[in-house]
Design a protein around this nucleic acid. Structure first.
Length: 646
RNA sequence: GCCGAUGUAGCUCAGUGGUAGAGCGCUUCCUUGGUAAGGAAGAGGUCACGAGUUCAAUCCUCGUCAUUGGCUCCA
């Protein structure tokens, strides 16, 4: 007998060789029907795999992330089986579960799989699922594994097997499909009740752009048809928040082929919104001791040779601008830091001057690959809310913390709660990607780790995500469709000060090297506004809304009074406009609601007589009648509250 | 940059080898209306751009550009 400890700490005894499914059955049939897999100690196993030792067992169902993962991983196998039956000879790469579903990378040979094929594959999957094919796990030797896939002629699987150690290799077979796989899997395919193959895309084998591009098919499955329906509705809802759609509808920004791909044009309302964000940050930065600087949009190529940007990115940048002078060339600036280094160099500094904080809303230009452009989140010309802090080594941590404080203040003011804090480190396997000494890198990385720990940030460390000159702390937020974007960033840099030979005079009257902190709380105005639009679904906080109030006269007779209200609000620093169309009030209200204008003021005979307005709040309806003064006070108080909500 | 898809009126989209349609928006007129769509008329398109096939191309073929789902990249 073995002892099985359940999550509630109760211990039950079973025969050795018992399966998680048996355990579930011994608790209740209903539970057994829902068990997808099980966590045995800290490893997720098939629910049908024999347990031969004492263990902690947690049964996993659709309600568990790992349960879903099991479902989706098994679904990838099911899809592969369907594809193999419909298109014999297809070769398979990898087919993992992902955050929302699964994919399989396949090499269809001569055939091109298109979206039209997906419907057929879905149908086949459901057919096979109904057969309740059992997922059978077998342990195989490396030799057997190699033999199997040599016979099948699947070079991708052979490559994967060649990297595995003998004795750890398992196959899973379900129906007619056998795959190299670590598992775990569902007991059988019958759990898969609803299937949607969502998209098809090219994906390089092993993520290497020099290797063959396979066809990747993404899909998602559910244990109930209703859940699939709900998921699809959710996706539709998410699309409505897409900043590209809202940006157009709310007239915030646009693009023009004539201007060029990836070069955003801010429309008046978008510019209004952005300027308010900039003014807000300028105020915060002034309080925090930053000094404004302004630098040009181009810089001599030599500047970027010194900084290292030319070597690193020169080949993939906009071509240099040449001049009538032989050999002279300028670059569109891709970064503000080299310019700021030169500002620092413009005069000698004492340790007493440090830290020095230069801030600039600096517009930079980067030649992003054409396939990378995406709305406002990935563009070729954008404005960073950049600043560079030049400090002594022992000021790093306090300066770093002060920056975190600014970022948190902004995120809080805009109600960004779901962000990810990431420590972006070197890839230790690719030292050639970075400049500077190992010693400096370690110092910088340690400083960031220490700050993260001391500030109690729940940060995840990711290797290979650092900038080429230094490690970063990045603040990431997801867009409406779940894609992660980096917003705020703080970077510790020992390298540029060295390359620019920056110095300050210490108390010992010797020259010392300052450390540089690069930081941008918004990241870029473009990307930040994009994420902000999606975050609030276009319903901006009152202080940012390009149009705060719309006045709706009941009829033309009250046009004069509407003008008077408008003038009063403008004098009270409130952004108001009048809907003077010859339309009924219901229509004006509907249009204002759709334009997401925070407040609507209905004015007619009654309001004019009382010098009042009837207030309607976007999304929540009629608030009743207010005197003009009371309304203005209410708006101004709310704006003030929102801005100071920190 | 790579693989796939898409590009028709300001917007959302339908459509056809014989040079085009709807709804919304816009303009004008009627209507002067109290909390999510009042009525009528009208204007508006080189069907992304360039070649090719054809008697004839918005439609078929090729190329370019842009958008888009991913991959790769992201100072």
């Amino acid at each position: 007998m073995i002892n099985i400890t359940l999550p509630d700490s109760s211990v039950r005894q079973y025969e050795a060789g018992v399966t998680a499914l048996d355990i579930a059955r011994s608790i209740s049939e209903g539970l057994a029907r829902n068990v997808l897999s099980a966590k045995i100690d800290d490893e997720v196993w098939d629910a049908t795999r024999a347990i031969r030792r004492d263990a902690r067992v947690q049964l996993l169902t659709w309600n568990d992330t790992e349960g879903k993962a099991t479902m989706w991983h098994s679904s990838a196998h099911l899809m592969a089986e369907a594809i193999e039956q419909l298109h014999p000879g297809v070769k398979f790469g990898i087919g993992p579960d992902i955050e929302n579903g699964f994919y399989y990378d396949i090499d269809p040979g001569e055939k091109v799989i298109t979206e039209a094929d997906l419907v057929e594959i879905e149908k086949k999957m459901l057919e096979l699922a109904k057969e309740k094919q059992v997922y059978q796990r077998t342990e195989v030797t490396k030799q057997e594994a190699l033999k199997h896939f040599t016979e099948k002629g699947d070079e991708y699987k052979l490559e994967l097997i060649s990297e595995l150690e003998d004795g750890t290799i398992t196959f899973y077979k379900s129906g007619t499909f056998t795959d190299l796989c670590r598992g775990p899997h569902l007991p059988d395919t019958g759990f898969i009740k609803a299937v949607k193959l969502t998209s098809i895309a090219g994906a390089y084998w092993r993520g290497d752009e020099k290797r063959k591009q396979l066809t990747r098919i993404y899909g998602i499955t559910f244990p109930k048809a209703k859940e699939l329906e709900d998921y699809l509705i959710l996706l539709e809802e998410a699309k409505k928040r897409d900043h590209r759609k809202l940006g157009k509808e709310l007239e915030l920004f646009t693009f023009s082929q004539k201007v060029g791909a990836g070069l955003p044009l801010w429309l008046p309302k978008g510019a209004e919104l952005r300027e308010r964000l900039e003014q807000y940050l300028k105020k915060v930065q002034k309080e925090a001791g930053y000094m404004p600087v302004i630098t040009p949009h181009i810089g001599n190529v030599n500047l970027y040779k010194t900084s290292g940007h030319f070597d690193k990115y020169g080949a993939d940048s906009f071509r240099p601008i040449t001049t009538p002078v032989e050999g002279e060339a300028f670059f569109l600036k891709p970064m503000n830091c080299p310019h700021h280094c030169e500002i620092f160099s413009s005069k000698p500094h004492s340790y007493k001057d440090l830290p020095i904080r230069y801030a600039e809303f600096g517009t930079v230009y980067r030649y992003e690959q054409s396939g990378e452009l995406h709305g406002l989140t990935r563009v070729r010309g954008f404005t960073q809310d950049d600043a560079h802090i030049f400090c002594t080594p022992d000021q790093i941590k306090s300066e770093f913390k002060a920056v975190i404080k600014i970022i948190m203040r902004i995120f809080k003011a805009l109600d960004f709660k779901d962000f990810i804090t990431q420590i972006s480190l070197r890839d230790p396997n690719q030292p050639e990607k970075y400049i500077g000494s190992t010693e400096n890198w370690e110092k910088a990385e340690n400083a960031i780790r220490e700050v993260a720990a001391e500030e109690g940030l729940n940060a995840i460390a990711v290797e290979g995500e650092a900038a080429f000159y230094g490690p970063k702390m990045d603040f990431m937020v997801r867009d409406a469709l779940g894609r992660k974007w980096q917003l705020g960033t703080i970077q510790v840099d020992y390298n540029l000060p060295e390359r620019f030979d920056l110095t300050y005079i210490g108390s010992d009257n010797e020259k010392h090297r300052p450390v540089m902190i690069h930081r941008a709380p918004f990241g870029s105005m473009e990307r930040f506004v994009a994420v902000l639009i999606e975050h609030c679904a276009g319903k901006f906080p009152l202080w940012l809304a390009p149009e705060q109030v719309i006045i709706l006269p009941i009829s033309e007779k009250y046009q004069n009074y509407a003008e008077k209200v408008s003038q009063f609000l403008k004098n009270s620093d409130i952004r108001a406009l009048i809907d003077d169309r010859s339309e009924k009030t219901g229509r004006k209200i509907r249009d204002a609601e759709l334009r997401k204008i925070p407040f609507m003021l209905v004015v007619g005979e009654k309001e004019e007589a009382e010098n009042a307005v009837s207030v309607r709040k976007q999304g929540s309806g009629d608030l009743g009648t207010f005197s003009l003064e009371a309304f203005a006070t209410m708006i101004n108080d709310e704006v003030k509250k929102l801005q100071e909500n920190v």
